[in-house]
């Protein structure tokens, strides 16, 4: 069985990262935007695992565990923030969330 070259993983994760980034920019629902950010983070996780395997080192994989823990914490905080906003505005569309005009 031949192993999949590392570069394949890197290209795949770069694609996933770009899909996530484009999603953040074009989608208007706060929850979907947040899911796109999670997609970007998981793309990075794939990069880290592939590189750690290529280098034969563990630190990249440890990083992935840390990223997962942080992503879980982000979900907890993020959903609470969205809930707090829905209390006021009853919407998750970021175009309608416009009291502050940057």
């Amino acid at each position: 069985m031949t192993a999949v070259p590392t570069s394949f993983y890197l290209v795949l994760s770069a694609l996933i990262f770009v899909i996530g980034a484009v999603g953040v920019l074009v989608r208007r629902n706060a929850l979907i935007i947040f899911m796109c950010v999670e997609l970007m983070m998981n793309a990075v996780n794939l990069t880290l695992i592939a590189l750690a395997d290529r280098f034969g080192r563990l630190d990249g994989q440890i990083f992935v565990f840390m990223v997962m823990a942080v992503a879980a914490a982000e979900v907890a905080v993020g959903l609470a923030i969205v809930m707090a906003l829905v209390h006021h505005r009853d919407t998750t569309n970021v175009d309608e969330i416009n009291l502050l005009k940057g």
Binding site: F17, F34, V37, V44, T47, H87, L99, L100
Partner: peptide, 29 residues
């Protein structure tokens, strides 16, 4: 409501930027 909105904007853009930071760290790795 403005406070909640500030929080959401900070959160979404902050998480977005964290993902960029993370990818940068992975590529330097």
């Amino acid at each position: 409501p403005r406070s909640a909105e500030a929080s959401l904007k900070y959160f979404l853009l902050g998480a977005f930027a964290s993902a960029f930071f993370l990818y940068g760290a992975a590529l330097v790795y």
